[in-house]
Nucleic acid binder design. Structure first.
Lengths: 119, 119
DNA sequence: TTTCGTTATGTTTGCTCGGGAATAACGACC
DNA sequence: GGTCGTTATTCCCGAGCAAACATAACGAAA
């Protein structure tokens, strides 16, 4: 394989992994990061901002996840002392933990295949 | 994980895998299929047509692959008995075989993770 | 009751990527 | 030399999709 490439060291295996349902994507790397940021920052708008994503898009992703899961991953509150906010439910926390683990196994696979590519 | 989902059986892990270089993508599932079709049909335009892809795009992909590989994966001929054509070089055949194998290992990974998702 | 930052949602704007048309060159074959 | 189907390449346009914008509702706190 590597003998196909001019400078094999500069080439890598890369990829994307996600969970998909009958209608739509459910969870991927972008949605995971969004959940993590919401957990960290307590708001969808701050999370979006931190990811350089429009609030609308972030909200749509949250909405999509909440709609597909058995119970919402993110709970929101409008109004209140700081104008409102958002936090992960127990289900949301579990989703983050589980998908992080999956992502880690995938990364191991990708790294192994990259190593195989190099020799 | 599955307890997050309303009907776990309808959810799957899915993903994409590719080889990327410093500048651009080198090989992915779409480019693989294109190479396979060229091998099978002997022409870029026929391959593109079979994939419902514009000739222009197909040509660009071939050009990108040829430019990044140490030696071209696809060799072309303009003019001639049937107006010309394209075929895989030895390097091209090797690229197909090797990436097919990689894709198979990836599919196994995805299937295993989907199974894990279901229990 | 005003302020404030957020959620929630519809509308418009803008931009990028690919599609499609147009054109040239090519070379075997009749 | 005319025909044909292909490679090769440029240019323009439109669809689709995300960003940006606009607005309403909300509720705690001052």
């Amino acid at each position: 394989m590597k003998d196909l490439l001019p400078d094999p060291a500069t080439f890598r295996i890369n990829g994307r992994l996600w969970i998909e349902g009958p209608a739509d994507r459910f969870l991927g790397i972008g949605r995971l990061e969004l959940l993590q940021r919401i957990q960290q920052l307590g708001s969808i708008s701050k999370a979006a901002q931190a990811m350089n994503m429009s609030y609308k898009r972030a909200w749509e992703l949250v909405s999509s996840m909440n709609a597909q899961a058995r119970e919402p991953l993110v709970s929101t509150q409008t109004g209140g002392q700081r104008g409102g906010g958002a936090f992960l439910t127990a289900a949301g926390v579990r989703a983050v933990v589980d998908f992080e683990a999956l992502q880690l196994r995938f990364q191991a696979f990708v790294d192994a295949e990259t190593a195989r590519l190099h020799d």
